[in-house]
């Protein structure tokens, strides 16, 4: 299949990209790696009138150490996330989850920002940013603003980005003393997550001081499993306590039933995988 016709602008920098987007109106779209967008265009499930290609905008790419956080450019590819020394050291959860995205070819082209802006509830990286309490740096016609991860994912394939906004970078706090783990369950190697669990745990001696758990594919957006987190705060880091807390992972979630899995099964997986993720992050 071939996409429907559209106009195309290759942006030189953030400013020209924003101008082009503003001029393009409602039906203009950012083209990052294209790994989600182009398949949709090919199947003619989307038909934007203008694509603004930010692939050549150097300032959107790369990882910067910013003291207590990393700033990851939106155009940083999955492959770069996996292999970047700063990410591996300070945000290993991002590297670990990026490695589970799609396949090598897609990871060479698909970007962090594209994944987040696309906001597929089965995507691996949205949940990770939620677990890490990342902050999204957004630029629009009205200037720059920061959006916390907890407010970024609004609904199925919908974010706090407006059509003429550009996601510039994501600020990922370093979590010294924390251990993290991403547990993904797939039907086949190339498939998206049936359920995924991103965890970050800080513990001292035998006690969990603080834990964060974010779930992929358990609703129309990634969600934090707050009841699990609450149950873990101050709990002993024992298998029983972790299992007990993980048993609440599906509480308050609204998983979908679709061709891949029923809501029931997803809830069950959320509990099992949360336990496994917590075991890995505390073990």
């Amino acid at each position: 299949m071939i996409p429907a016709a559209f106009d195309y602008v290759r942006a030189e920098d953030v400013r020209t990209a924003l101008t082009a987007l503003a001029d393009g109106g409602e039906d203009a779209k950012v083209l990052a790696g294209g790994q989600s967008l182009i398949p949709m265009l090919r199947l003619r499930l989307a038909a934007p009138t203008l694509l603004v290609d930010v692939g050549g905008v150097g300032e959107l790419r790369g990882v910067r150490d910013d003291g207590d956080a990393l700033v990851i450019g939106s155009m940083t590819t999955h492959d770069e996330l996996m292999n970047d020394a700063l990410v591996r050291e300070h945000a290993p959860l991002v590297a670990q989850a990026a490695a589970t995205v799609a396949d090598r070819q897609v990871r060479h082209v698909g970007t962090f920002g594209g994944s987040l802006a696309h906001a597929d509830p089965a995507g691996d990286l949205p949940g990770v940013t939620l677990a890490l309490d990342a902050t999204f740096s957004v630029m629009g016609p009205g200037g720059a603003r920061d959006v916390p991860a907890s407010e970024f994912f609004v609904d199925y394939l919908t974010t706090a980005l407006r059509p003429d906004d550009l996601l510039i970078s994501v600020r990922v706090p370093k979590l010294p003393g924390w251990r993290t783990h991403y547990e993904k369950f797939q039907q086949a190697a190339q498939a998206w997550a049936v359920v995924g669990v991103a965890t970050a745990v800080r513990r001292s001696n035998g006690t969990v001081d603080e834990a964060r758990v974010a779930l992929t594919s358990m609703g129309s957006t990634p969600v934090r499993a707050h009841t699990v987190e609450a149950a873990l705060a101050g709990a002993p880091a024992t298998a029983d306590a972790l299992a007990e807390a993980a048993g609440r992972a599906a509480d308050g979630t609204t998983p979908m039933s679709d061709g891949i899995a029923s809501a029931d099964y997803r809830s069950h997986l959320a509990r099992v995988l949360t336990r496994r993720a917590l075991e890995a992050a505390t073990g």
């Binding site: 290759r10 083209l31 090919r42 694509l51 290609d53 070819q105 897609v106 082209v109």
Partner: peptide, 12 residues
């Protein structure tokens, strides 16, 4: 580096 040439525009 490997890419899927069906998922890139020629202009990219």
């Amino acid at each position: 580096r490997s890419v899927k040439s069906c998922s890139l525009l020629a202009v990219q």
